[in-house]
Structure formats: C-alpha cells, structure tokens
Write a protein that binds this DNA or RNA. Structure first.
Lengths: 154, 154
DNA sequence: AATCCTTTGACTTTAACTGATTTTAACTAT
DNA sequence: ATAGTTAAAATCAGTTAAAGTCAAAGGATT
C-alpha cells in the first residue's frame, strides 16, 4: 500500500477533508510535480479512485488556466438510491423501464416534475433514432448520467 | 475562474447587469488596457462567450470614435424563446455551443441549476460516444427535445 | 503462470493568449 | 473634393499552457 497512486489518493482526500467546500480544485501538472510522477498518472488515480461509484464527481477544463475539480457526493439516502438505480439500469435499458426509473425518482421526490420531463424527453425513443441494440445502450448511458448529475450539492 | 478571459466575461456581464439598457458600449483598447491584455483578446472573449448562441449580439465600429456594443437579446416570452433557441441549435450543435445555450437558459432563470446540470449531463461528449457527424446531430435533437419539454406548457 | 494493478510516455485535444497585418472611419490639410 | 494621417477595430495564423487518451511496459498478487 505504498505506491504513488495510494499516496495521491490520500492527499486528495485529505484536501477534501480540510476544505470548507464540498469540492477541491487542483492542477494536474502541479500534482504530478509534487508526487514526481507523470501527469497521466493523476488521471489513473481519478478513474480508479474518484469515480461516481466511489462517491465523487470530477470536472475539468483544459487549456491555459486549466484545472481539475473533484466533488464529493454527500452520502445520504438520495445518493444511495441513485447509485443503486444506476446499478439497476446497467448497460442497456428499454424506454418503458427508463420511464419506470424516472417515475420512481419522482415518487421518491428526488427529482421535480420538470426534471422528470427533461429526463423523459431525452430518453424518448422518438429522439434516439438509432437501431435497437445501440439505442438501449445509449439510453442507459444518458439516464445514468442525468440522474447522477442531481447528486451534486449547491 | 483564473484566466483573463473569464475576468473579462464577468466584467462585461456585470456592466450589462448594472445597465438600465439592454446593451453596453465599450472600447476595445480601453478594455485591453484595463485587463493588461492584447486587444485581440477582447475579440476572443466576444466570440467564445458572447455569440448569438449565448444570447448576445455584438455590433462595432472601427476608426476613430470606434466602439463595441454588446446587446443582450431580450427574451421575455417563453414560446418565442423556445423557437429562437431551437433555431440557434439547428440540425447539429457542438458541445461548447450546447453548453452556451444551457448557460444562457440558466442566466435567464428559465431553468434551475439542477435542470441545467441534467441537460449538461445528457449533452456531454463523454456520454455521447459516437462518431462526429452523428454525435452533433443527436446532441441537437436531445437539447431541443429537452428545452421544449420544459419551456412549453409548464 | 496468469491476472490484475500501476507506471510511463508518446500523441491528441482544447482553451487561452499573442502579434503582425488588414480594414474601416474620422479627421486634417491641401 | 482629394489625399494623407490617425485612431480605432477585425482577422487569422501561430504559440503556449493546460488536460485527455491509450497502449505498452513493469510489478505485485494469487
């Protein structure tokens, strides 16, 4: 347990713990310098330890003034349910099932009626004019991304 | 928010917010001086943050007494807005432009922060893992459908 | 030995910034 | 009026400063 990735992970979680905000902003090249590693190792750490499944969101911007922002998802009933639903959705989902998921979120009051409408519109079969195997996969990706997005605080 | 372009953007939007009119007039060289940058950077900011998709018109005049006028397109009636936006979106749209449209809806307070996040998640290029010509078309379809779903009726 | 996790680096993409050159409008002096 | 000068803004290609991707090599674990 003494590899660089673990150290970077600990460091970032330390930063998050110390921060008053629910997120922390770093620069990839700075981090790489601090830990004497190659910049892409930061990406490795992010994907293996700061995924949504782990309870984190990662946003970033390239170009000069670029940054990486790591957002901690507050763990409560809401996030539990959302992550669980993401599990249920899996790799692919039919429109009917997607509607079911959205309805469930609405009933649980985790999303508003307007949010439900937006999600429904995105997931609609008339919009996703693609052949069958691809369509259900894309629908799953879309739905999961959308419902995860409501986990961000603020 | 650490680069000059973001600062210039904020400054201009501040000016617009403070102004009683729906437009603001500046001089490119003045702005460049105020922010210690090269004049052409102002043009960069204008094209990347004050395009029609973002909800702004830019007029200007060269020569002595020249100026740049930034006009915020007034959009009060919701139905008009939907039509106009869908027009802007067209058949296909890049992610950057889609983000611009969403940002604008948010600034106009026609959607909530959470709704903006849901839309953003749906329109994200990492989700829409498709080859280029198809992806931008799908993104346009999605965005239009989502906007209509929420701004019509309501 | 096989598999999984980590580390590396070459290549790509994106965003911001720069500066030389061009275009336009107004002003000035013939 | 006309030509010349000056004071703006526009353009666009090029540079710099980030972050992302991906596959291959290296280590650790079972």
């Amino acid at each position: 347990m003494n590899n660089i990735s673990d150290l970077i992970e600990r460091y970032l979680k330390q930063l998050l713990a110390e921060s008053k905000r629910e997120f922390v902003e770093v620069q990839r090249s700075d981090l790489a310098l601090r830990f004497s590693c190659v910049p892409s190792q930061i990406n490795y750490v992010l994907t293996t330890r700061f995924s949504a499944g782990h309870g984190y969101f990662v946003e970033s911007r390239r170009g000069s003034g670029g940054y990486i922002r790591i957002i901690k998802i507050p763990l409560d009933r809401k996030s539990d349910m959302v992550l669980e639903l993401c599990d249920v959705i899996g790799e692919a989902i039919s429109q009917a099932d997607a509607d079911g998921v959205i309805k469930r979120l609405l009933e649980e009051k985790l999303i508003s009626l307007r949010e439900a409408r937006v999600m429904h519109a995105a997931v609609d079969g008339n919009i996703l004019k693609l052949s069958m195997p691809v369509r259900d996969k894309l629908r799953a990706l879309l739905l999961k991304a959308m419902i995860k997005s409501i986990l961000r605080g603020g």
